[in-house]
Design a binder for these strands. Structure first.
Lengths: 214, 214
DNA sequence: TAGATTGTTAATCGATTAACAATC
DNA sequence: TAGATTGTTAATCGATTAACAATC
């Protein structure tokens, strides 16, 4: 509990928008812009300027002179807030289609995440390398997690196996689980879980489609 | 505008939870349950019973006797609400890692979606078949969309190409776009867009992780 | 009946949007 | 200065949660 991060309840929605801001700020920085106003950002992102102002304000993005946010400082503020200022080592369980897609997503390096190992039970996959990441047998899970002191897991396995594996992960001291299996995981309160459900987005799309074609 | 669907503003969050309910109800139906109470559902899903009651109520799920929701009828209500009662034919653009993962996700057939064609510009992929879906060259996009009368697109291409392709899709009469590229798309109001940003979930996880390890 | 449940209205909470003063 | 901007407080909107009557 550092006195610096006197965190004043930053909303989930704000947090979800931060990566988008970060991408825009990276671009701006590359183009040499040092300041940018919330109205300019609004034009770029299609988000209302007040929302942007509030969001960036809430994480303490630096903003001098009435000429907008400091580009470099805001990048640092977002990265710092999310802990993306240094790479978090993570591992992935389930090297199927989705797992391989995530392993191939080089963008994670801009997002604070470096996947350093993958696990699978399928003999065809074990021993392979996917995008430079070695695939180990799940039997080696405990040993490797502990020796490499990995704390972040990405779960891309079928729902039926998810809770069992999760229990093992918790035993091994894993602190965060990014779960793509469509199953609510039970974990002790000290472990962070982020649940992704691809079908939620599809449901939203279908509802929009229906209302448009009324 | 059928008088049946006198839709009374169903919240986005409710819509996003529907697929989860649907999965549970499929299971219940398979196990032969014909009725289920919101308290039982709450135990299964870790969602508060009042939330479940409200959600299902809002889409008109049938619920007789003070003994809960009718399993079969609720499945039909959810499927009907989302338009998942008959399969929507869709196509995918960008047969890279993520595209292949989505093509391999057989679960879509339970979710009202059938991907019938894929497009890519990479000569190594064109002409291939991924999970039984043919990969065509993007040059053939217009012809095939129009001849098959496809209305739903799944975009798994790099951000830089997304808006250009989108313009073509709109020209061809596409009505819904599920966009996995990290770019806000500009479309006419008659077209539904669902934006997915994988980084949002990661940001949420990192924020949770930080607050737990304070 | 007693008890568990839905149905429905009200209260709370949180996030977005508006308004406007302060600034350089 | 004039004008665009941040800073900050208030108002609105929407979603969640609580409360309790009605039901079989």
């Amino acid at each position: 509990m550092s006195s610096v991060s006197a965190k004043k309840n930053i909303s989930t929605q704000t947090i979800r928008r931060l990566p988008q801001y970060l991408r825009v700020f990276y671009d701006l920085h590359e183009y040499g812009r040092s300041l940018v106003s919330s109205t300019d950002l609004a034009a770029e992102t299609h988000i209302l300027p007040i929302v942007i102002k509030k969001d960036l304000q809430s994480i303490g993005a630096p903003t001098k002179l009435r000429s907008g946010f400091k580009v470099k400082g805001t990048i640092e503020a977002i990265e710092d807030f999310l802990g993306w200022d240094n790479l978090n080592k993570a591992f992935l369980i389930g090297a199927g289609h989705l797992g391989a897609a995530l392993l191939g997503f080089s963008g994670f390096k801009n997002h604070g995440l470096e996947i350093v190992a993958a696990f699978d039970t399928n003999p065809e996959r074990v021993g392979q390398e996917i995008n430079g990441v070695a695939v180990y047998h799940t039997a080696q899970l405990k040993t490797i997690i502990k020796s490499k002191k990995l704390k972040i897991a990405v779960l891309t396995i079928p729902g039926a196996a998810a809770q069992g594996i999760t229990d093992t992960l918790v035993e091994c001291g894993v602190k965060a689980i990014w779960n793509f299996a469509p199953v609510k995981l039970s974990v002790p309160p000290s472990v962070a879980v982020q649940q992704e459900d691809i079908a939620s987005g599809l449901a939203e799309l279908c509802a929009k489609l229906k209302s448009k074609s009324s």
